[in-house]
Structure formats: structure tokens, C-alpha cells
Design a protein around this nucleic acid. Structure first.
Lengths: 233, 233
DNA sequence: GGACAAGACTGACATTTGTCAGGTTTTCGT
DNA sequence: ACGAAAACCTGACAAATGTCAGTCTTGTCC
């Protein structure tokens, strides 16, 4: 990957509200900052592959990454997205397993790689960091439990409405109510866990019911309460 | 819950191969052991309810607990089981969230409750414990990713075969190849994420294909390779 | 700007799975 | 051991969703 002209620093992210390293001493922060490697990734680049060993974790400085698992016949199941302030790759490092997901860039991104020795060193020397990291991991585990239950029990229609609302919460709408993340219909289907055509049909239906508007890949959410009702919140 | 005549000790579990407290000093182990409360739970007892605050976590000393989330119309989605050596309830403690699951006893159980102050104290003072707990949590997160992908992509038939094999791995077969966990058809359906009748029909089909045998609630796995083939391992 | 590939859309039809209803068997508690 | 409730089973039918094929539109690259 290309190297950067402006290398992001941990201090900048901290100043912008990044939380993971909030409890680090200045010395610890300097060690992490000096030990990291930051790279620019273009849309479509793979950060790490399912099945590979990862020797560190990544902080997302800009852009959007999709984290997915490849199932039957190579079909993707998107597990989640990562954006500024999120970290990826730590699960396999800490569990001492191979990566069980692939991370792919969907909006041009900058990621900072932090070697696993630095991660383990922080866990060993800074209990406040450990607690914060565990909090993050356990929240992700709770989200997974919700995800499992939704996929198992909700209809595709309910799920699509819910996914649109979750995307709104995570990535916001602009002034025209357009979702600030651009996904193919296939990617939406890979989040819902259904066939691409099912998503296309339901989006058309939502459009004709005036719940959303569609312009190419752009999706405007016109009726949030209506979508919430369908999503069975 | 009833109190016990024989109170299990942490030392006994350690001697039997329990791993979570493996890195504790003798002093730390004594504090945990003295601070815990052990109770007997009968089949059907609830250990903790979804939505409640939990002020500690539980070590399972004997018996089997099902961990489930309640979805639409009160339908359960079983997330996993816990048996001897497993811990439950730590996720909500560490994430500082309410419990997102319910834990219910399916085989009479003994559980030891460890207060959250002791958990946080260990994390603060024993980095090896922290690393071990994080490893455990991250492995569970990896399993969740698999679960999500399977539910989304596999047919109910594939999933049922897979669930039977997972139950075999976790709870073993006896000499007659009978699964050593007793579940209703509804519970199996709540693991697969499908209707009870679908499970019943598929079990009948597996039986007539000589993959399994059924005697009341007892399920014998007769053809492991056949089940693995169906499960798309 | 043009060409081509990828993605989006639609309809027809097939398959899978769920719901409902009724009857049978097993489990559980006394 | 008995009775009641829970669980299991089965068939018919409905609903949801997937697959396939063909056409149209958008995005990307030169």
C-alpha cells in the first residue's frame, strides 16, 4: 500500500474523541504512536484475509471497511463495518486464532497498524486499557447476540428496514437524507443474509411506499418512523 | 436457591483442568474462593434474566445451562450452552450493559457466583488473567461470526445436521451413541432458528435415512460422516 | 466521450419453510 | 401408578424467499 504524506498521530485521534487509548500514559502513547505504521488503502483493497495470521491490529483513521466472512459458494456475510475510531483485527490476535473474517475497503481509507507486541504490552502494563478493551469486545459480543436473533427470527423485509436504520445511525444522513455510505445491492443483501433480488424488490417496494427514495446507489430515508415500524423495533 | 452440602472450591476445579483461574496467585485464588457463593439450581430455574443488571459472573460447576435471547413474540433464540468449566454473565459486567440474554438451567446445576468487584480486581492486578479472559471472549466472538454466517446462508437441513454434530462435540455420546444432552424439539428449533415442526420433520427424515435413531428425547448419532456431509463441513 | 463490465431491475416459476389443525406419545408431578 | 400437560408427529396448505433469464442502467477505465 502507498505511504502517506501526512502521517496521523495517536494524539490527534485522542483529541478528536478516540477512546481506546484514553487511559494511556504519555510514554505509552508515544511508544504506540512510534511503533505504528499508517497506510492508505483504496476501495477494494484487502486489509487482511480470512484464514491468515494477523500480527497486530488496525485503527481506522478514515474511510470505511467492511468486515465479512465467506460462506458457502464464496458468498459473503457482512458481519459489520468499521469507520474512524474503530479497531479491527484484534479478535484473532487476542484469541490466538487465525482471522475468521476478511476486511475490505469500501471507501478509500487510512489505517494505522499496531503490532501485537505493543497490544500485549499495554494489556500487561495498563489495566485501565485492558478494561476498556474488554468493554469494547463484550459490547461487540452483545451486538452479535442481537444479530443472531434477528437473522433467525425476522423476515427479510423487517431485516432490511432495520439495516437501513442501523446504517443511518452509524453513518448518518446528509441534508437530503441520503445515507452517507454507498453500498451495492449485493452488499445490502450480504448484510441482511438474503438474495440480491430480494433486496432489490424490497427497496422498490419501500420506494413506492414512500419510505425511501433511490438515485443510483444513493438511498434517502424519507420516513424513519415508518421504517422503524416495519423493522419491529 | 438451595444451599449446598458440599461447597465446591476453586482449587478442585483447577485440579480438574479448569483454566480461567490458572494464572492466579494462591492469595488471589483464596480471595476469589472465599468471596464466591455457590448454589444448586434445578431444571427450569433462571440464573439471570435478559434486561437485568448482573453484579458478577457465574462459574458452572455442574449441570447444563442454556443461554438464550428472547425475540419476536417471546420466541427464544438459543445462543449457546454452558457446562462445567464455562462462565456466564461476564459479558454484561464487563460491557457495563444490562444482560442481553437469559440463562436457564436444563440439567440440574451448581453454579458459583463471583462478585464483579473480584472480577475487576483480578483484571487490575493480574494481567495474565486479563489476557486469558480476553482470549476466551474473543474466541466466543469468533464463534458468533460463524453462527451468523451459518444462519444466514445454510438451509435448515444443513443447520440441523451441524447442530447435532456440535452437540456431540460439546456433550459427547455414550456407548450407545446417545447424545448426552436432552433437548425438546422446540429447543433444537430454537438453536437452528426455525419452526419446531421443521425440526421434527427433518429428524424423522434423518431417522429414516439411518443417520440417527430416536427414542423419546434421546437422539443417537449413527452416521457421523453422513451428518457431516449434510452439514456442509 | 465511448465501450464495456458490473450492477440493478423485473417477471416467471420453483423451492423451502412456516402455520394450522388434529391426533398420538411421552414426560412430569403427585 | 395415574392423570394431566407437554411434547411429538403428520398432513394440508400458505407464505416467504430463492433461482433463473433477460433487459436496462450506471460506473469505470482508456
Amino acid at each position: 500500500m502507498k505511504n502517506l504524506q501526512h502521517v496521523p498521530t495517536c494524539e490527534e485521534c485522542l483529541a478528536n474523541g478516540h477512546e481506546l487509548f484514553k487511559d494511556l500514559t504519555p510514554e505509552e502513547l508515544e511508544i504506540v504512536n512510534n511503533g505504528k505504521g499508517c497506510s492508505l488503502y483504496k476501495r477494494g483493497n484487502i486489509i487482511y484475509h480470512e484464514g491468515n495470521r494477523i500480527n497486530g491490529f488496525y485503527c481506522v483513521n478514515r474511510g470505511i471497511i467492511k468486515i465479512y466472512k465467506t460462506g458457502i459458494d464464496g458468498k459473503e456475510q457482512i458481519i459489520r463495518f468499521a469507520k474512524w475510531g474503530d479497531i479491527i483485527g484484534f479478535r484473532s490476535v487476542l484469541s490466538k486464532e487465525l482471522a475468521c473474517t476478511t476486511a475490505k475497503v469500501i471507501d478509500d481509507a487510512i489505517l494505522c497498524f499496531i503490532p501485537s507486541e505493543n497490544l500485549f504490552s499495554l494489556v500487561k502494563n495498563n489495566p485501565a486499557f485492558s478494561i476498556r478493551l474488554m468493554q469494547l469486545t463484550c459490547r461487540e459480543l452483545g451486538e452479535s447476540n442481537n444479530f443472531i436473533t434477528d437473522i433467525a427470527q425476522k423476515t427479510v423485509r423487517e431485516r432490511l428496514a432495520e439495516i437501513l436504520l442501523l446504517l443511518m445511525e452509524n453513518f448518518n444522513l446528509d441534508d437530503d437524507k441520503v445515507l452517507q455510505i454507498s453500498l451495492t445491492r449485493e452488499e445490502l443483501a450480504n448484510m441482511v443474509g438474503t438474495a440480491t433480488e430480494s433486496v432489490i424488490r424490497l427497496l422498490s417496494e419501500f420506494k413506492s411506499d414512500r419510505l425511501i427514495d433511490l438515485h443510483g446507489r444513493k438511498i434517502s430515508l424519507l420516513d424513519i418512523p415508518g421504517l422503524k415500524k416495519i423493522a419491529s423495533f
